[in-house]
């Protein structure tokens, strides 16, 4: 494990903690896309199938359990928690995320590493994660006043995969490890989708104003 990989995992963990903090502290999920949260829950459920079959390390198991349980807890909160669910912008969160699931599944059927159930589902989770943030970014453009915790959550969520890309670059040059092209391409696409947000996040940080995405 290299520093980029560890920093990526910690950044991902911080993004989850920020979202849980926002929902717990404000008892509200305003500005959060339920659809993105559902897509992420699906990403973790299909990627960590080996949770009970292959033990890799304590760290690996603990992180997988954290990501699966937190994503399911957030989806449950936004759907069923009596207080939180009232603040969900149902009429603003209208991205057709079912198409993202269908598209990713078709991609996984055509382009898996190996044509086995596990590998197809793994490829599906990688392709789906690359586009899972789209409903959230669209919602962010529609909601004018988004609280800082939400923007920090999105910033850390976008940064984690960028750090993974650095991890693959680092391993390519130091371990001559080519990595997996599915991870490379999806990780790059995922990070590129955030570039626009990163730009406005940086601008808002420099001018210490609230983050505003152009309409």
């Amino acid at each position: 494990m290299n520093i980029f990989r560890f920093a990526g995992d910690m950044t991902h963990l911080v993004s989850v903690l920020l979202l849980l903090l926002k929902i717990y502290a404000t008892k509200s999920c305003s500005g959060i896309s339920l659809k993105t949260q559902e897509l992420y829950a699906l990403v973790f459920l299909t990627r960590y199938l080996d949770l009970f079959t292959d033990f890799i390390s304590i760290y690996n198991t603990v992180m997988k359990v954290i990501f699966i349980t937190s994503s399911l807890a957030i989806v449950w909160c936004m759907r069923a928690h009596p207080t939180v669910r009232r603040s969900y912008d149902r009429d603003q969160d209208t991205f057709r995320h079912h198409f993202l699931v269908l598209l990713s599944f078709i991609m996984a059927l055509f382009f898996p590493d190996l044509f086995t159930t596990r590998e197809v589902l793994w490829a599906f989770s990688i392709y789906l994660e690359a586009v899972a943030i789209l409903p959230q970014l669209v919602l962010l453009q529609r909601c004018r006043n988004v609280d800082n915790l939400t923007t920090h959550y999105i910033f850390f969520l976008g940064s984690y995969r960028a750090l993974y890309v650095l991890n693959w670059i680092y391993r390519y040059f130091t371990e001559k490890h080519a990595g997996r092209w599915i991870s490379w391409i999806s990780g790059l696409v995922q990070t590129v989708l955030y570039l626009d947000f990163f730009y406005y996040y940086f601008i808002s940080w420099k001018s210490s104003e609230k983050l505003r995405l152009p309409a």
Partner: peptide
Amino acid sequence: AQDDSTKDEL
């Protein structure tokens, strides 16, 4: 195929 070194990636 999934060589072991990427297996531990999250």
